[in-house]
Amino acid sequence: MVSFDELEEGYEIPPYIKGPITREQLVEYAKASGDGNPIHTNEEIAVMAGLKGVIAHGLLDMAYLIQAIVNWIGEDGELKDIDVQFRGMVRPGDMVHSKARVVKKYEREGKKFVDLEIWQEAVTPIATISSSYTPDKIEPPPDCSVKLYEAAYRGWLKDGQNVIVERKKEENKIEHTFYGVQRSIIGTAKVELFK
């Protein structure tokens, strides 16, 4: 339950993860939403428009952010206002992480409101490498991480984007997956809480 009294400024809602985005899904969204702009569905046209291939609809990404907030509040409140800026492109293959943090809570005319800072991260898998796992050495060799860092710049990432590494141990192997992370949406939202 989300309760006004218990909610603290700085609280971050549970991350809401969708994806990976697929081309089929963009075609389906284009039909369902009525947004026929071909940069979302046609590779050739997207490239001609100066993109590196089709990109997801900003409003699809925004829909995920709305779901993240609505699913968090459940029956305990209502989303009243959401204001976003589209800052980065989301592409097929990306995971989309929607996030929100409480910045202010206040009462007005007998109603309880919470202001949220909201954002979305597009997480792009760049490369996965496997190496033999030995318990005393689980870090990838240094030269290897340099190579993967270069791979991050295959035209998919811009300056200032972060690279995160996820390590998975499986039997006698360890898998290192490198992801590029960028903020695709930033914004604010206002929620009314009933309790």
Binding site: G58, I66, D83, V84, F86
Partner: peptide
Amino acid sequence: VSKLLHGGQRYEF
């Protein structure tokens, strides 16, 4: 029109 970007969107419900 190909230079057009969707910069932002606000919904009040």
